[in-house]
């Protein structure tokens, strides 16, 4: 059970990081579509909505439409409705503020750096990618507890303070149902993970090692 959970987290964060990394690819969307969530929680519901918003099989036209919409929502040019940087939401609508500095520092402390150095380090895709990196660390026994604790701190101090605001903007502005579902999925996964991490680390749920 625990092992499943650790892998689940890895898969979800990898997937979410990829979904916020332009352009949306067929592989990512196929991976999203292949997931099966048996529960009826909010995250599972959002996942199913996202899946049903996709053509089956995935058409080139659909992919194009999603990327044009993603451009409008998050990429530009100029002002976009959903701005995927922590700094914008937390530090007076400017990029590269203290929140970007803080996550950069954290990445370095974990001995990693973003592969694309020119993207501000508090871009949503990078923050989710870092959670997937931490999730990967939890698969190793000797790193598990540190990585889980770091994940909880990261969620609470870096991602969750701005994620709801971003997701609300994304959901309100999305013309393609897929992005509304993606917004809900992101918010639900982060919230559920925060709760799970909290309970796990409080020893209420699972023996970790």
């Amino acid at each position: 059970m625990t092992g499943d959970m650790l892998e689940t987290r890895l898969i979800l964060y990898r997937l979410l990081a990829a979904l916020y990394h332009y352009p949306m690819s067929e592989e990512t969307l196929e991976a999203l579509r292949s997931l099966d969530w048996q529960e009826n929680g909010g995250a599972a519901e959002a996942l199913r909505e996202a899946q049903s918003a996709l053509d089956a099989p995935l058409s080139a036209a659909m992919l194009e439409r999603l990327n044009v919409e993603m451009t409008r929502l998050m990429e530009g040019p100029g002002v976009t409705p959903a701005i995927p940087y922590a700094s914008y939401h937390l530090h007076g609508q400017q990029l590269m503020g203290p929140s970007a500095q803080a996550v950069r520092r954290l990445y370095l402390e974990w001995g990693v750096a973003p592969e694309q150095g020119a993207i501000p380090p508090d871009h949503l895709s990078l923050e989710l990618g870092f959670l997937s990196f931490l999730a990967e660390q939890t698969l190793e026994d000797d790193k598990r507890e540190d990585a889980l604790r770091a994940s909880l701190v990261f969620l609470r101090e870096h991602l969750l303070p701005w994620l709801p605001q971003f997701c609300a903007a994304l959901e309100t502005s999305a013309r393609e149902p897929f992005f509304g579902a993606l917004s809900r999925l992101t918010r639900q996964v982060a919230a559920a993970d925060e709760l799970w991490l909290h309970e796990s680390l409080s020893g209420q749920l699972i023996e970790l090692s």
Binding site: T28, L35, G129, S132
Partner: peptide, 29 residues
């Protein structure tokens, strides 16, 4: 309907898509 149980039963990730997901990487080096 937030539930920790949300996380517990994610399944059905096919081998191909799992590989694809792993191939995505974390975006970090």
């Amino acid at each position: 309907q937030l539930s920790r149980r949300d996380f517990l039963k994610l399944s059905g990730v096919g081998a191909a898509s799992l590989a694809a997901l792993q191939g995505l990487g974390s975006g970090f080096k």
